[in-house]
Nucleic acid binder design. Structure first.
Lengths: 213, 213
DNA sequence: TTATTTTTGGTGTCATCGCTCCAAAAATCC
DNA sequence: GGATTTTTGGAGCGATGACACCAAAAATAA
């Protein structure tokens, strides 16, 4: 009944201690879990699928990651850290103006959503929209992540307005909401098998809604 | 092992026969199931949730609907029949031009996605994107429905090009893919709690990408 | 080497899931 | 009213899901 509290990451994460060192690479195992969650979602991924893909036993899993839900949170953070690399690099590139940043964002999105070395689309856009009651924590977490990326877009547009490369008359939050919606739609299109070219052209069309300066 | 084949709808569906008539209204039960599936998705909705919401017993469920998967298909058809009402009425309204039809489509979408009498967003847009292996039939079914609505949009645009109210130089399929993506994005935004006004403004912004005649 | 610390495999457990069977009950037809 | 046909409630089943526990194994510190 009393839930076991995992205070800190153990396994490969702790510094070289006394006992037997873990035989598996925690980062590699986490990455494998991330891809599975990305592909199938939280509820679509079973405990057995996870430990099998991660190449560890049930007890190692429990020792190192605490629970399926804790692992999902960690995998999500890992995904965000990874996708945030290209996302924020482009969004906040100081050498380009706001509109160009968004255009490049969608070019990169078309590429990233259709790569062969990881699942199609976006782990965040597709997750936690359709879920059982009792999964509200998961749903809320993903909604927050979506809201975060939308607000990052809004901040970039506001900066553009301050810098003078975006008209001061536009509603920055609404423009960000629009491009956020387009990104979510691209994730669904990618999942349904849309080609890189198709995604790129959708993004290009979306850019033609950019308000005139 | 030999799967029980449900040849036709029984229960309230069959014409007044000999035996004891069903005590529940099949259409009402189906609608309750539809709303549950719409809210939670296929995997997020349990058998017990269903029979409880439908107000019937497990055996009545099995007698009348065959299986959870068969019910899901039927609920999906029911949803499409219902949402197709407003969708195609606007898309194929002969009294308005193509661009106006799409603008009205998004106005209606903003309203329909945020009504209090049924779940938020769209049952089709959100379903079957993140699912377990073995659910490929469900995933494929939903992807087909999405492709169908996209092709209906493309057909409307092609008709517009033929009628002369859309430029003949545009790529009709690509424009449809773009508006399809926007619709998917609106469904996610609606799920995340976006207001009707926010959705309407996103749709309005999306319309400003309409190619010049 | 010995003691200590930690991981590991295997097994067990409890709940849920989706389904299935069965006999009683109820309504119609003759 | 009796026979027939169908629905209904309830009990139960095999599979899966997500852990949880434990004793053996392995590696380091002393």
């Amino acid at each position: 009944m009393t839930p076991k509290i995992i205070t800190g990451k153990k396994g490969q994460g702790s510094k070289r201690g006394r006992g037997r060192p873990a035989v598996f690479d925690r980062a590699v195992a986490l990455q494998a879990a991330m891809k599975l969650f990305w592909e199938r979602g939280y509820e679509g991924t079973s405990f057995d699928d996870l430990i099998s893909a991660m190449g560890i036993s049930a007890s190692s899993f429990y020792n190192s990651f605490g629970s399926k839900e804790a692992l999902y949170c960690e995998a999500t953070r890992s995904y965000l850290e990874w996708s945030g690399q290209w996302f924020f690099a482009i969004l906040n590139d100081p050498s380009i103006d706001t509109k160009t940043a968004f255009a490049r964002l969608f070019e990169a999105t078309a590429e990233e959503f259709t790569r062969g070395d990881h699942p199609l689309g976006c782990m965040i856009s597709l997750a936690g929209t359709h879920c059982a009651p009792g999964m509200s924590n998961i749903r809320d977490m993903m909604a927050e992540h979506r809201a975060f990326s939308e607000s990052a877009m809004a901040a970039r547009i506001r900066k553009g307005a301050a810098d003078g490369d975006v008209s001061k008359n536009i509603d920055c939050d609404m423009l960000a909401a629009y491009y956020s919606a387009v990104a979510r739609g691209l994730a669904v299109q990618a999942r349904d098998g849309a080609s890189r070219e198709k995604l790129a052209q959708i993004g290009h069309l979306a850019m033609s809604a950019w308000p005139a300066g």
